[in-house]
Amino acid sequence: MEKHSRTSRSSLSGRIVAVVFASVAAISIAIPAANAATYTYANNVPTAEGVERDSGMRTSITGGSAAVTLGIGTQSIATYYPAPGYTTVAYASSAAPNPTVISHKRVSNARSKCSWHLNGLGGHSPKLTCKVIW
């Protein structure tokens, strides 16, 4: 009898664990992890308004992201080919504090740059984080 009781409890625990793990798995599937390959070239770096952070030459770029710790203003991110023959591949800007993300067709030997702006009113240096997606 005792053995039967232990078996029942063990079985019940197993079922609970199984149900809980199934729930976690379902939720995990519903919330896709951000698993794109990224390289952070500005990591929470104090940056004055209009100052551009640059990734340097990258063999492959498919996008980028920028975020500034500022409640107002605009942050921008761009993928470009440098001078001579400066060419912008893609750019995006959005209102802080919401991060800006772009994706575009894969390009080779290009660079990424980011900055933030507040109509020349930004008197301090909030922290800027920018990444290359490749």
Partner: peptide
Amino acid sequence: FAPVSAALGDR
């Protein structure tokens, strides 16, 4: 409502 202004230099 704050309009977004894209301001990126060329270099």
